[in-house]
């Protein structure tokens, strides 16, 4: 009898420990990924680096450059507005799948095809801008994470996608809209510079001081890199845990002023099963991008266009900490 009572006491004891364990996990979850991580104030301003040879946005002719003095007959690099002039319109023109204005042009295409023996639906937003300030990012409100659509609406985004979920990571680089918020490095880092160029820096090679000096305008630290000099990559062994078929968000770069957002739906039988990282890489090679970079996908994978979902998010998406979007230039 005494032995049985002791046994019950031990079982009860374990039950109490189990309940405490569950409570501890809930507390951990709250502090780890439910409670919004504060971003320090305003960040540190990064002055844009003006390259007179490649900066297409600089139309100011008040101060002639050395190049102009040496040879006035030498052709000037066309501005982005001149280079992609046929894409823009004099007034704002909107359709279900396009948006054109004097400052930006966005064309969203839906593709449904069989890839690797499974049905896949993905969306490509082809983006042309006249000024780098059209290419922006935004954080969720300080009170908590939000759906992509809410952050997009608050910031008057024309097209928006989920970002790199910077808040869930403690050690990643965060440079947004020309301000340095956090130094660090976890994975491959995608850097968009103020001159419109985009580059993906391999993990552990990233140097915050170096990219700041080069005029970094945005960084995303998630990855992996999806192209090597425009060629598809097949080895994603460092990212094996996320390399399978999934809903995906990614960004592509053609040349300064021309980019694309790609959103792949997934985990929805009969509609779209998602893409592997290798298939995603091949897709960007087919699109003709020079650089491409994988962002936070899965349930976070959402694209909005003109105030509505452009895709069919898995389980209606989730609340996120940040978005990437295209908007009219800030006055």
């Amino acid at each position: 009898m005494k032995r049985s009572k002791r046994h019950l006491t031990f079982a009860g004891h374990l039950m109490v420990d189990l309940l405490l364990f569950a409570a501890a996990l809930l507390i951990f979850a709250y502090f780890h990924h439910v409670r919004p991580q504060p971003i320090p104030d305003e960040g540190i301003f990064i002055p844009p680096v003006i390259d007179t040879e490649t900066d297409s946005t600089n139309t100011d002719t008040d101060f002639p450059t050395d190049t102009e003095n040496k040879d006035s007959s030498e052709e000037k690099e066309p501005t982005w507005a001149e280079k992609f002039s046929e894409k823009f319109s004099e007034t704002v023109r909107k359709t279900e799948t396009s948006y054109q204005s004097p400052n930006c042009a966005i064309f969203v295409e839906k593709h449904s095809e069989s890839i690797g023996g499974s049905e896949v639906t993905y969306y490509v937003a082809d983006i042309y801008i006249t000024d780098i300030s059209c290419f922006r990012t935004a954080f969720s409100s300080s009170s908590g994470y939000e759906p992509v659509l809410n952050i997009a609406e608050r910031n008057n985004a024309i097209v928006a996608i989920s970002g790199d979920y910077y808040a869930i990571h403690r050690t990643t680089s965060v440079i947004r809209n020309g301000r340095l918020y956090r130094e660090g490095n976890k994975g491959d880092v995608c850097v968009l510079y103020s001159n419109g160029e985009m580059d993906v820096i391999a993990k552990n090679s990233f140097d915050t001081a170096q990219v700041v000096a080069a005029g970094a305008y945005q960084t995303w630290d998630f990855g992996p890199n999806l192209l090597n000099n425009g060629q598809a990559i097949n080895d994603f062994s460092d990212y094996s845990s996320i390399s399978g078929r999934n809903p995906r968000t990614a960004i592509g770069y053609y040349e300064p002023g021309h980019y694309c957002f790609v959103l792949v739906d997934g985990r929805q039988s009969g509609y779209s099963s998602g893409l592997t990282l290798s298939q995603m890489s091949s897709l960007f090679e087919e699109l003709g991008c020079k650089e491409a970079y994988n962002l936070d996908g899965g349930q976070s994978a959402v694209m909005t266009f003109q105030g509505k979902w452009a895709n069919q998010p898995y389980k209606n998406g989730r609340n996120v900490s940040d978005i990437i979007y295209i908007g009219e230039p800030e006055s």
Partner: peptide
Amino acid sequence: DITLILAAMILTFWIINLFNPFMEFLDNE
């Protein structure tokens, strides 16, 4: 009791970290 609970927590984090290392269940303050 505290040791047991902490051990169970760390074991849990270690397992879920195998499935989703991007959530940094182990690598956080």
